[in-house]
Each structure stands twice: as C-alpha cells, then as structure tokens.
Design a protein around this nucleic acid. Structure first.
Lengths: 333, 333
DNA sequence: GGCTTAGGCTGGACCGTTCCAACTGGGAGG
DNA sequence: CCTCCCAGTTGGAACGGTCCAGCCTAAGCC
C-alpha cells in the first residue's frame, strides 16, 4: 500500500480511501491511485483490514454432513444473500462428531468471524449458548428449546407429514402407516404430525408407526414387516426419501406396483425423489429460502445483538409424483 | 494478550510462546500463563497472528458444484489430511459460473490463503496460470495441458471406460454402445477409452457413440434413440450415473429388464448406483484418496514452490452390481 | 477584504500478534 | 575467581491496513 502511495504521489491514507470506494476522493487522485495499484499488481490484504476494522465480513458455516444435498441447497441460498451483501462464507464440518464440531466452532471464533450459522448441529446445548454469547448465531434445522441470543430457522415438520396424510386421505386411503425415522428431533416431529392428522381424520384406530430409520436399509426392513402383516396398509409415509427408496425395493420384491397397489410418500423432496425412474411423491422444504432467511436473521442480530431469540418457521409443501394414487378397489379397508 | 501477560506477571512475548507450545518455556511460567488465560477467557486472535506470520494455515477450496456428491467426498479426504496438519479449509463455489469462480479465487488471494485447491474449475487457463504464480495451486478433475507451477490430480477416465467395456466383453457382449457426455474434457476422455477398448477387442465396426449429456434427460433421450434403431445394442455404457438412470427409465418404458435384456453401466459410482432399487454397475473413482493426494501435493509445493508441474493420475475401479449380466442368447449379434 | 465553510488530503496512533536481538542469572569449566 | 554458555525471558519493531483529528486551499458570503 505504501508503494502504491509513493508511486501515485499521495499518502497511504488516500490509497486506503480509494480501495474502499470512498466518495470523498477527487477523480484525479482516484485515477492515479488505481493506475499505480494496477501497475504494481497490488492486492488489498484482508487480513490486515480485518485486524484494523475488528470485523471480517465473514460468516462461519458449520455443516453437519457435507454429503447430504439438503445442506448444499441451504448453502446456496445463504451464499447468494451473503455475496450480495459483501460477506464471505467460511465452511466447516464436524463430520458427524460433536467433538469435532466444537473444534470447528472454536476455530471460527478464533478467526473472529462476524457470525456463525450452525446447520443441524449436534453439539450440546451449552456449547450453543456459549457461541451465542460471543457472536451472532443462527441455528438451523434443530428443533427443541430456544437458545438465548440465538435465532433459529426450522421447517414445520408436523405440518409436512400432515400434508402428506391429507393427500393420501383425499385419494381414499385409510390404512396409512408411517415408517419412523428413529431417534432425533425431526423424526419425532414428523411422527407427531402423522398421528395428529390421522386422529383429526377419525382414523385413530388405523394409526400404525413402524420403527425404522432415515436410511434405505431402515425403510426396507420396515416395509418388509408392514407387508408381512395380516392387513397391510394401502399407503405408507416414510421418514425421508432414502427410507422411501428402501421401501420401494421391498415392494418390488413382493411384486407390488407402487402408486397402484400401494402408495408411498417420502420426505425432503431430494434429488432422489425427482429421478423419473423413482418418481416419488415427497414433502419439500424450501431449502435455499431457509438459507436466505438465516442470513437475514444474522444481519438483524448483528444490528442489535441483544434482541430476543426468535424462531423462524417455514412451511413445507407437498410435491405429488407417480408414487401415490387412488386406493385400489377392494384392498384392505 | 497483554492482559493475560499482566495477570500472569510475565511479558506478552512469553504469553505468545506459551500459546504456540514453545518448548523453551519453564513449566512454572507455562502454568501461570495458561491459568491467567483460562480465567480471562482469552482466545488467540488468528487474524493478528496471520498478519504477523505472513501465513494463515488456510487452504482455499474452490468447488465447481456443491450439489455433486463427488465433491463432498473429495473434500472429506482433503479435510481429514488438512486437519491433521493444522490447516483450515476455506470453501467457496462459483456456482457453475466462470466469472464467479474468478471472484472467489481473487477473494482467496486477498485473504492470503497459503494455497488453493480448484475442484473441476471452469475458469480460463490464463486464470489458472495467474493463480499458480501467486500461491501453491492444485487443480483437480480437470484434464488438459499442465499448468506451469501447479499440480493436478485426475483420474484416468480412459482406463475407466476401458474397464467397463472389458467387463461387458467378458460377459459375451459385442454390440456395446456409448452414451456420450457432451462437451467437456472428461466426456472426451471417457469416449476415447471406450473407442480404444472396442478397437482393441476387434469390435471397431460395432463402435456406436450416441450423443447425450451428463444429465438424466440426456441419458433418457439417447437410450430412446438406441432402442428405436434397427439393431439395438445388448449393452450400453452411459457417460455417468445420472445419464444411466435416465437410460433406465427408457428401458422401463420399453418393457426391457436391465441386466437381463440389456446391460447398463454408469460412471462415478455415486450414491445413486448404490441404491438397491437401482443397483447400477459403475466405475468408481477413489474420491477421498484424491483429496488426500491433493493435500500432499500442496504440501510438497509449498516446501518448494518452483518444482515442476506434476500430474497425479489415480486409477478407477469397476464396481459390479445388478445392471450387467450375460448377453441374452439370440439377441443382436 | 476578512471570515467561514467544506472538500480533499495527510500523519501518526492503533489493531493483536510474531520475531528478533539482547538481557539475565546460575552452573560448568578452566 | 573469572569467563563462557545457555535456558528462560523481555522490549520493541514489524506486519498492512483503518481511523481520526487536523491541515491546507479555494470558494462563498457579508
């Protein structure tokens, strides 16, 4: 910067002003500085700037699992909004381990990020509380109690499964089973939505929750059990798309046609559901919108760090595809 | 840091030494400093450290497409190795646009990363050359001429399609078609491998390359054309898994059983291929190993920035699943 | 003509570290 | 007893920017 200043015949303060697009610089000096910078191949040092400004215009994003396409889309939304506002994203992952997640978070703080966005974190609540005290914090896709001074963004999973059940009822189905997602807050939410919707439709007696998991093996095994029973359901609501695909395999093994002999619904509207060969009716969460909302929440909180913790709930949508159809005549009840 | 020093009754230089685990500190002072730091909730400022040390122990990783699970696994390997060595990863994406990729790269340089890893970048060659001059650069999954002062890590795609063709020939197939991946260096490599393997087996006359793309629509359309022809192939090698899944849909529409009436092979051994419902024979690239190799290359180059550009080629493997089987008797030739 | 105002610019303190040359005190060696 | 050495420690100069108070000059106003 000093070399640029010398070459342009001005002070380094002025170079600094030009680099930051200050309006109170004459056109002549601006041009001279830019020319000198160009000639010297000068590139501003964001490290030094960060030190002097005491802020980095950087957001730390902690992702539970890089492989899950869900997160990729959330980051898309986040990145888009952040980029527009001149923020950079520092992405890290604890690769599914709480301990590593904590390390990554600490490293974000040491790097003095202006805020952190935690995507489905599994660290203990106390860690979240600690983070929220240090820096603007947004927690995504984690249900449970609010964390003081942190905002959270979640989807209404109960509403999601309710949509699915109502769609099936509209098609004439009554014996609708649910393949549970196992432990974890979102599996619980999804199950509650299913049960409530069934009860509201007067189908309490037909509620059937089969233990499973969020994996294809889990969905496969659960569907096996359902089909082996005396009165198999005419429709099944899987915990997520992956489990639904596992269930699909089981149906094939039994020679049943999905969408005709039995209707199947997934959850997440992932990439998988969209494949024509699979064509799965599924509940969609507005992922990139969630990313945008998270960034907005961050901005609001950095403007006013002491505001109350908020929870932003977004509504899921049902995407109907080929895996659901009318109740087969004469089947079950 | 000064406060910690005062509280511990030592100089800030000594605090600095303790924080960096220097061996030339007495146990007594070390303990006193750590105690004071603990009590004050002191957290080292990596920004200031980066400024003073003139290096950041940070690697900029530019990803072509966050959604592609291929990249997630490469990053896994990279992250593992980097973490072990005390490096952090700064991840960014140009979201498929060359112009944005350039911006992200420039931002990495302004942040003074110690190196950059470019995953399948689409920026112009001149940009790569420029980056390589500024900082240790590793280019991944991009074929083509070597870039001066940069190392590259690629898979041998020609060998990959060759493996696939040889597997099919071993099963008795002769009329083996290839669905091309469209433009781009890797589509070219894959096609060349196919053609060479066919020629080597004396099947030059049966070489058939159907234009397509790396998407499911592309695979679907190409398979339609192949099946509509007079002498449809008994085996098809798709450009990647996604195209193979599209082809699968076309087969279904024609009432053909995959693995029996026609054999199908994908490329990438993605998540999709592993789904039981799909069960696609596919060519696997050692993704996380590629990530580790990229980090090694970075380390070597930072130790010696002027070493010659190298190209590290890793060998693909064939993963056989249910979509390939013996040539149906009496079919085609 | 003198006073005020404002735009444009500057010098130097500061941000929180690392680095380096130099200092100290006690033990070993002659 | 003096010198040398070395482990342990220290003060102050970087690192490359931003920030702020203040300076200069020319224009505007009465």
């Amino acid at each position: 910067m000093v070399s640029v200043a010398e070459r342009a015949g001005v002070s380094k303060s002025l170079v600094s002003l030009v680099m930051r697009d200050s309006p109170r610089v004459s056109d002549a000096s601006r041009e001279a500085v830019l020319k000198a910078a160009q000639e010297l191949g000068y590139r501003p040092n964001l490290i030094a700037r960060g030190l002097a400004e005491k802020r980095t215009r950087t957001l730390g994003v902690l992702i539970f699992d890089l492989h899950n396409p869900f997160f990729a889309e959330v980051i898309d939304g986040l990145q888009e909004q952040a980029h527009e506002d001149g923020y950079r994203l520092l992405i890290g992952t604890g690769r599914g381990r709480a301990e590593e997640e904590e390390e990554v978070l600490e490293s974000f703080l040491q790097q003095r990020v202006d805020g952190v966005v935690l995507l489905s974190p599994i660290v203990e609540r106390s860690v979240l509380l600690g983070a929220a005290q240090e820096v603007s914090t947004v927690i995504m896709a984690r249900h449970g109690k609010l964390v003081a001074h942190a905002d959270s963004v979640v989807t209404d999973d109960q509403a999601g499964t309710r949509l699915a059940v109502e769609h099936l009822i509209g098609l004439g189905h009554e014996a609708i089973a649910h393949i549970d997602g196992g432990e974890g807050a979102s599996a619980l939410e999804r199950r509650l939505g299913y049960e409530a919707a069934m009860a509201d439709a007067g189908l309490t007696e037909l509620i059937r929750v089969e233990p499973g998991s969020f994996t294809d093996e889990g969905g496969h095994a659960a569907m096996q059990v359902l089909l082996a029973g005396e009165e198999p359901p005419t429709a099944v609501l899987a915990g997520n798309d992956l489990a639904a695909v596992g269930a699909l395999t089981a149906l094939e093994e039994h020679g049943l046609r999905v969408g005709e002999d039995l209707s199947l619904i997934g959850y997440d509207n992932s990439y998988l559901a969209r494949i024509p060969h699979i064509s799965l009716t599924s509940v969609a969460q507005p992922r990139s919108e969630m990313g945008r909302l998270a960034f907005d929440a961050f901005k609001r909180r950095s403007a006013n760090p002491n505001r109350r913790a908020t929870r932003i709930v977004v509504e899921p949508k049902l995407v109907v595809r080929g895996s659901t159809g009318p109740r087969p005549s004469g089947a079950g009840r």
